[in-house]
Amino acid sequence: MLDFVLNLLIFFIITAVFVKEVGLRVERHGGGATGAAGGKSAGSISIVVKADGEVIVDNRVVDVRAVRANVERLHAQKPEWGAMVTASQEAETGLLVQVIDQVRLGGVQNVSVGTSSK
């Protein structure tokens, strides 16, 4: 009985350590209606996610799967720039996370997120 309880204890300690949340660390920049944090003064790659699912990189409408290639190209041109993802208030989080993921795959780790009221 005691052995059993001790085993249970060890088991729960181990599983509790393994249950780790995974996430994307992002910064926050002000914009639109919610302007709490100040943006950085350095330049950045601008990406806009619209409510209807359109993604705009560098003023061109692109597919979600093309975000990575575009970011890679811009990153090669301006290696010190971070990325600024501005999402519409009504845009879906799934798409936003997908875009952030693509940006990070494209080599830009410094991603900040903001919203616009459009």
Binding site: A33, A87, S88, E90, T93, G94, L96
Partner: peptide, 11 residues
């Protein structure tokens, strides 16, 4: 955030 949650709420 749920996949379908609004980005505005997240922000």
């Amino acid at each position: 955030a749920d996949k379908a949650a609004k980005a505005g709420l997240l922000a």
